[in-house]
Design a protein around this nucleic acid. Structure first.
Lengths: 120, 120
DNA sequence: CAGTATCCGTACCGATACTG
DNA sequence: CAGTATCGGTACGGATACTG
C-alpha cells in the first residue's frame, strides 16, 4: 500500500495532523472557539489547569497552522482575540464526530477496562 | 473547588479517548486492522520504525480498551492474532473522517505554515 | 491584560539484549 | 515467533516569577 509511504513517515503532514488532533489542548481550544472569539484569559478560565506557557504555545501552533487568528487591539489594557478561521471551522465536524463517538461508546470502553483490569 | 465533570478533567473518559486517538500508533494500528486480523510481526512490518516495546504497549492498551482482541494459538512457533472488536470497528468511521479532512485540507495547513514562518 | 522567561522533574520513547 | 527487561536521552509540560 502506498499509504505506508505517507502516514508512517514522521515528517508527513497527515502524521502531524494526527499529532495536532491528539494534542489535548488544541482540540479543546478549537471546540471552545466554536461559538465565537475569545480572549486569552477567557480561554484560560475555561480550561482549568492549563498554564500560560501551554496556552500560548498551543495558540501559536494553531495560528501557525492557519486554524486560528490572533487579533491584537492597540488599547490599554491590552486586548487580544482568538477566533477560528474557516479552516479551523472545518475541523468542527471532526470534533463533533469525536464527541459523538465518545458519548456513544465511552461506557463500553470503561467497562472493557475494568474487565481487563479485573482479570489482571 | 469544583470538580469539572467535563472534558477538561484529566481523569475524564472523554479526555482519555482524545489521548488514545492522538496516539500515533493506536490510530495506525486500528486502520491496519480494518481489513482483517494481523499477527504481531505483520503489524511490525507494516509500521516502519515502531519498536517492539511500543507495539506491545499500544496493542495492550487497545486490548484493554476493548478495541482489539488478542488471540493466542497454542502452536509452535507461537502465533498471536490481533483483530478489531465491533467497538474497534466503530472507530473506523472516525479514522476515515480524519483521513478525509487531512486529504482535503492538509495543503492549506502546509501553506499557512510557510506563510507564518516567512513572516517570522 | 497578555503574555515571556526560566527552572526542573518525569514520563515517554527508541535502541538493544534477552527469553519461552 | 512473540514478546519482556533494562537503560538512557530528551523533549514535553507544570510551576513560578517577571514584564510591557
Amino acid at each position: 500500500m502506498l499509504v505506508e509511504a505517507t502516514v508512517y513517515a514522521k515528517d508527513c503532514p497527515s502524521r502531524q495532523l494526527l499529532d495536532r488532533i491528539g494534542d489535548t489542548w488544541s482540540v479543546l481550544i478549537v471546540a471552545l472557539l466554536a461559538d465565537g472569539p475569545l480572549r486569552y484569559t477567557e480561554l484560560a478560565h475555561r480550561i482549568p489547569g492549563i498554564s500560560p506557557k501551554m496556552l500560548t504555545q498551543t495558540l501559536r501552533a494553531l495560528e501557525r497552522d492557519g486554524l486560528v487568528t490572533r487579533t491584537v487591539y492597540p488599547v490599554v489594557p491590552p486586548r487580544v482575540d482568538y477566533a477560528l478561521t474557516s479552516l479551523g471551522r472545518s475541523l468542527l465536524g471532526l470534533v463533533g464526530a469525536l464527541q459523538q463517538w465518545a458519548e456513544k461508546h465511552i461506557a463500553d470502553v470503561v467497562e472493557a477496562r475494568s474487565a481487563y483490569d479485573a482479570r489482571g
